[in-house]
Design a protein around this nucleic acid. Sequence first.
DNA 1: CTGAAAGCGCTTACAG
DNA 2: CTGAAAGCGCTTACAG
Lengths: 342, 342
Amino acid sequence: MTGSVTLHDVARRAGVSLATASRALNGSANRVVGEQLRERVLRAAAELRYSPNAHAQAMARGRTDVVGLSLHDIADPYFSAVAAGVMREAGANGLLVTMASTQRRPGAETDYVGAFRRHWASVVIVVGSRTDDRAATDRLADELAAFEAEGGRAVAVSQPRLPVDTISIDNHGGARDLGEALHDLGHRRFAVLGGPGDLLTASERVAGFRAALSRRGGRLDPDHVVSGPFTRDGGYDAMHRLLDREPDVTCVFAVNDVMAVGAMAAMRDRGLEPPAGMAVAGFDDIATLRDVNPGLTTVRIPLEEIGALAVRLALEDDVARPRVRRVGGEVVLRASTPRVPS
Amino acid sequence: MTGSVTLHDVARRAGVSLATASRALNGSANRVVGEQLRERVLRAAAELRYSPNAHAQAMARGRTDVVGLSLHDIADPYFSAVAAGVMREAGANGLLVTMASTQRRPGAETDYVGAFRRHWASVVIVVGSRTDDRAATDRLADELAAFEAEGGRAVAVSQPRLPVDTISIDNHGGARDLGEALHDLGHRRFAVLGGPGDLLTASERVAGFRAALSRRGGRLDPDHVVSGPFTRDGGYDAMHRLLDREPDVTCVFAVNDVMAVGAMAAMRDRGLEPPAGMAVAGFDDIATLRDVNPGLTTVRIPLEEIGALAVRLALEDDVARPRVRRVGGEVVLRASTPRVPS
DNA sequence: CTGAAAGCGCTTACAG
DNA sequence: CTGAAAGCGCTTACAG
């Protein structure tokens, strides 16, 4: 960068020292600059279109006004909803958000936290399911610990397996409530599109659903559980594989809404119109998908609120850490899962 | 931040000077450190878990490895798709992305570009329609010019009204092609849900659609054009207002997909099942909405590709600026607009 | 209330 | 190939 106006230029134009110029412009702790000088400085700064160098400020102050946010894929509406909450709350606190997409590459979270550390982010937020890879989780934990040891604040939105404040979504409970609700609608024979096998979020939802059925005295045929990526195409392919087995079921639970929508597309490919052909339920209550037809039964997770909460937790002072905040989901029954006539 | 390991610590542990440690760790321009010393330095850095201070590097180097991205709302799938492209391409070039949501607040773009300037972002990308507010556009133009004068690179995804490289989406052409295609399907009486009146993107789409009809010898009844926010609820409300007028039309064009989906919800509220009740078309081809039922006719815009292109334009050297890249859309006919029986 | 000066943690000519 | 030193643009004790 060249030609930028520095504090030095402002000070000279105003005929004051660097120190006075700095104080006039910020006047934080020891804010004591004569009215007259202050005005001279402000005028000079305006005339020169002075813009302070954030790096120099960071160097001198030893901290920064950015929050680093790591998530898997910003194009996925689950993550963009959380990101929206983070950005809203960050903006309200005068913080900028630096975002990184892991694209689910193993180790990427750790790399990005390292990058945020190098940038002296004041806050780091890591959003996304943990996996069953213990070693990877440990490396991330170490990096987060190093970040906090340097004075940063980290918050995870994930399973509570990291040594920092974490917001833990009750996947098990939500799926259990959903399973019970579907059972109460009269469904007895279920299938599940289970997401990637190594993702804890996916396995928790499957487990919760399974628990609901056994509570009600039913069970889930292992042959009716199909796994696949956490995406629209993942749901689409998984549903086709399920239907290839000609399963005798009345209702399929896809472990997230995006997969559920893919599943409905696959059903239609085969002339199975939902919900008549088969009832379908998802999880998350993605806003953009609230108008699909038939309306998708799901479990509402307050994603944006979770993002905002993450920032708030990070900014809270004088509390014992790490803390765990559990966030529950709420079953939303819609037209995709009608009552079974008895 | 406290307790962080500095280059100084690494140098001391390796028994070399600061300069040597720095060179061993980066070895960019004048990369000439003895193999033995280099190894000593690398080992010391690893042992100490050294993480360079990005601000100090930025200060010393006079530039930074971040791209600033301003957009209106990351929860809106239009913007999250563009953002995904920006992040992908930025990541491929070792750049971090700092993102800011304007929430369509007037003046916010200018404020954020100022923030990116203070942070010495090497690239700034501004995504979003210009409005008919000339003064606001001028202020943003000034800020972008100041940013580039300091050595930064800016790219706009918007109407070409800013003094920087811009990617201009052919809203007029896309809407015109869509209008002609719908006319060719046999539709003659149209309504338009026109988006916010001050947004150029909205008015360009309406104008293009109108142009198509007059080309074909038809016209758009002014009474059949309703405006409203660029959101799902905006489309929903606008459609209700339109239906209140009991318009004699066979097809409604919502100027973006999100509004179109809201419009379909409003129709269903009144027992008007699309497309039988009325044909519906949108614009953008939002990925998350490709499975709505009936499938939504729209104009496909390569949003992610546009985001990636923005980064690429910014990174190109030795070219005359500013440049304008026009990106066209492609009509995608789906079930929401069946042929009218003749 | 104001200023001279040290310091934040790096990089990079400039010498050797 | 290696090192001493200046400089990047701020902030903030420390004096006065």
